[in-house]
Structures are given as C-alpha cells and as structure tokens.
Amino acid sequence: MRLRLRSVGGRFGLAVAGLLVLVALLAPLLSPHAPEAMDLATELSPPRPGHPLGTGENGIDLLTHVLYGARVSLVVAAFAVALSALVGTVLGGLAGFMGGLVDEALMRLTDVLLAFPGMLLAIFITAVLGPSLTHVIFALSFTGWTGYARLARGQVLTLRERDYVQAARALGAGNARILFHHLLPNAAGPLVVQATSALPGAILAEASLSFLGLGAPPGTPSWGALVDQGTQYLLVAPHVALFPGLALALTVLGFHLLGDAVRDALDPKHLER
C-alpha cells in the first residue's frame, strides 16, 4: 500500500487531502478574519493588503471563506460517504447472506433508486427539505448507499462458500458472527476502494447543490455558494468566482488521484489494463 501510493498522482492526491484536512482543522487559526466579519468599505475588492484573495459581497474576506469552506466540503463529503458505506454495506451484506425475499426486495429497491439520475434526486430532496448541510448529507446518502449494497452483496455471495466460512460454521459460529467477523472484513477491500473514489463526487455534489442555493444555508462559507455569489459579479470582480472554484477543482483533482492510487494499491488486477 505504501509503495503504490508513491506514484506521482498518488503523492499529489495524498498531499492535497492532507493539506485539506489540516486547513479544515486549523481554519480559525489560519484565517486573517472571522468568517462573519464584514468590511463594507472594501466590498468586492481584488486582492489587497489585509485581504490576500480580495473580498466578496458585503466585504467578506475571501481567503477566510475559502479556508472555512474546506471544512464544509470535507465534513459533508466524509459524512455522506460514511453514511452511504455503512447503510449500504450492512443492507447489502444482509441481502447476500439471507438471500430469498429479503435479497430480492433490496435489489429491486436499488434498481429503482439507480433509475434516477443521482444529482436530480439530490436536488429534489434538498429542494423539498430546504437548504441545510444535514439535508445535503441525507440527500447524497439516499442514493449513495446502493453502490455499496450491490458490492457488499456480491462479495458476501462469493465469500460465503469459502472453506474458512464453512469451517467457522462447522465450529458453531452464529450468523451474526460469520457475517460481521468473517465475511465483511474480507469484503472490505473493494468497499474501501469504492468509498475513496466516491469522495471527490460527494465533494463536487455538495458544491453543486450549494451553487444552486440548495446546499449550505446563506452565510455558511461553502465553495459552491461562493462561486454562485461570484457569478453575479463576473464583470466587476471575477476573483470572487475564480478563487473558491480553484480550491474546489484542486481538491476534487487531489481526491480523484488519491482514489485511483488506493484502487491500484488494493486491487492490483486493475493495473494490468
């Protein structure tokens, strides 16, 4: 694992991810201003002393909001992916393990959910529930779990006939013990790959929803919301849209490369392609 991550892309991805976590944790220390501080005298000003990235609407400090935006981005994406993975793995594992009617019902449910364009459903849900980061996490997990469910089910179906599972059963292990002790840990590899490669998508989805005004509530520093604000002032203050978008693009790129590196490390078969 450590060796594989040494590819150029993997290193870059790891560096970006590490930097983002650091920024998210230290945002209050790194920021030159408080996120709610307004400086009406310098509204929509380009980079200047005191405001390294310039200011936005009402004179908010852009650098501060970009730094705090890392928090929103990371926390929402991490929770959405974790919730999807947890729900999907448990349900998919159960479906594969129990088979029969449970399996059939669950797979039909994933069919229906996958029949929606995911982004559209997320827009619908957040539109009905109203803008809030909790709703974004819920909306993204609402369809997000299906991928993990199918994966976990497939893994459990292939693994449960293995000798060590049969041996555990012969030794008198109960269903729960077999499922959580023998099957799921061995199915973890592909699930981890799926979760890592889902991160950039979740980050992008949160930003998109916030850009549409359906994600972060007004006043919350979010990259998508900042770009939305900036598009209104493209002519007079292009920096308001440019800098937060750049931060977002770099983050997505970094996590994307990290996902690729993790996949290559855990699933070497893929490398032969």
Binding site: S208, T231, A249, L250, L253
Partner: peptide, 22 residues
C-alpha cells in the same frame, strides 16, 4: 483527462464566460 474530470461545471462556465465573452 484527469484534470477535465475534476473541473466543476459551475466554475468552468464562468471562466469560459470571462475569457470568451467578457
């Protein structure tokens, strides 16, 4: 191609507007 996947549309759009329209 990798860079292209990472570009958010709502950012690429404004950048193109600034370049080609403004």
């Amino acid at each position: 191609a990798v860079a292209g996947v990472a570009l958010p549309r709502f950012w690429l759009g404004p950048v193109l507007i600034i370049l080609f329209s403004l």
